[in-house]
Amino acid sequence: MVSVITKIGRLALKNPLIAASGTFGYGQELRDFFDVSELGAIVTKTITVNARTGNPAPRIAETPAGMLNSIGLENKGLKDFLSNKIKSLETLDTKIIVSIAGANIEEFEILAEKISSAGCVSGIELNLSCPNVIHTMQHSGYRLIAQDKKAVEKVVKAVRKRTKLTLIAKLTPNVTDITEIGKTAESAGADAVSAVNTLLGLSVDLKRRRPTLGNTVGGLSGPAIKPVALRCVWELAAKVKIPIIGIGGIMTGEDALEFIITGCRAVQIGTAHFIDPAASRKILAGIKTYLQKNKIHDIMSLSGTLNNNKDK
């Protein structure tokens, strides 16, 4: 028997696999293919205070071993979430983490407060890093909150005051130094960081000489970004003490283990769900096979064990 249980702050997970925000709806949509109770947790599609209709079509463009999306946080808003989505989330036998995004501090506070009192929710992930929505909190010159240290500090501190739930700050790789942002989130009270959100990208439709996406730019995800995500995790692991949740192109058990060895205590599966709704089942089976083969009893004994090349 191998143990795959893990902990993010006070949040105990039966296994380290978490469905990434925006790739698993609100937990029910893929039930014909996959039982969410097989997952450690799910992060919901991001909720905003008011409903958002998202960006113009096309919103998806495939790229080599990856895809760009420019959905733009389409969702029905907080009120609909509380009155319609919560009920079905309650029935799920997995931990529920709600992703939230505010246009200002006050919106983050409202979202955190309402969602914390919803009962079945175990954690909040702050979406500070959606590349498809412009950060408008202050005229800082930054596109995303997660590029702006001061804004990250303010948001995390404000939300921390309003929730006892496990608080996760989702970081962007589109920065000069991700560890600066990670350390800021940590000192402001985050229980964990998730890294990384999508990379800002552009796809060109040569025939029409236009950007492929309706919103011009979008977020790159999928296997193409795995090396960038691993590098970000590796840098963070050296600088922050709070748990790191790895995200970026995980398609197999081996991919997930690479993130854990690099320093993660859990991982999120995203784009893989678009291709295979049951991807997480196969990833977990792959992890268990590796552990058994290598006689490792506790997956967490692997976390952060990446050898330094200088070591003999």
Partner: peptide, 22 residues
């Protein structure tokens, strides 16, 4: 026809405008 990511309704990529919303 609209470019789809998943086909199962979760990626929300293939959204169009209709009289009753997206």
């Amino acid at each position: 026809e609209e470019t789809m990511g998943c086909g199962t309704g979760i990626c929300m990529g293939c959204s169009i405008d209709t009289a009753s919303g997206k």
